[in-house]
């Protein structure tokens, strides 16, 4: 017994080493979203594209869709735009934008320059909808089901890997559940 006691420091060291080693590979930027499986918040906001028309939850697609938070100031949004564009052109999944803390004219110019993958973009100039969505910076992408319930959240840029391994599987799963 007392022999074993001598090894306590070694065990403590090993336990700490394992935890710190794991900590090296955790991404501190991915916060678990508390909004998963919660319905989208209510809103009544105009859009970038449709002039004065005010949109609400009822105007969102009634099939699974992506809600992509973007801004003209956001470089990663530019980076993921081609992936979203390709998906929109092939009608893979509807994409609705949330233009987060941006200026209308800048947002319109960005869409003109880079192309719009969005059905429309909700104009969230003061970031109030963003707060209700638990957003802390563009880009963030939600997978929403046909009932308007948030089912998955991706934080940061969508690259091909994230698209193939996270976004599309989440969409497929939501579709499969809806089909049952």
């Amino acid at each position: 017994m007392s022999r074993l006691k001598l090894f306590i420091p070694v065990f403590v060291f090993l336990a700490m080493a394992v935890m710190l080693w794991r900590g090296l590979y955790l991404d501190p930027r991915t916060l678990p979203s508390v909004l998963i499986d919660k319905p989208l918040p209510e809103f009544a906001l105009p859009t970038v594209e449709l002039g004065d028309r005010v949109m609400g939850k009822a105007d969102l697609p009634d099939e699974p869709f992506l809600l992509n938070v973007w801004g003209s100031y956001c470089l990663p949004c530019l980076q993921e735009n081609p992936i979203l564009m390709a998906a929109a052109e092939k009608n893979v999944v509807p994409i609705v934008g949330v233009n987060y803390k941006d200026k209308l004219n800048l947002a319109q110019a960005w869409l003109d320059d880079n192309g719009s993958p969005f059905e429309f973009s909700i104009l969230d100039e003061n970031g109030r909808l963003g707060i209700d969505l638990g957003v802390y910076g563009a880009p963030e992408t939600f997978v929403v089901d046909g009932q308007g319930v948030i089912r998955y959240k991706h934080i940061g840029v969508i690259d091909y890997k994230a698209w193939d391994e996270e976004i599309m599987p989440a969409v497929e799963q939501v579709r499969a559940e809806a089909g049952q």
């Binding site: 930027r29 803390k101 970031g127 109030r128 963003g130 707060i131 910076g137």
Partner: peptide, 16 residues
């Protein structure tokens, strides 16, 4: 991430 809302100039901190 490593500051309070008080100490942050980030857009979301301002909103919050």
């Amino acid at each position: 991430q490593n500051t309070s809302l008080t100490g942050s100039n980030g857009g979301v901190a301002e909103d919050l």
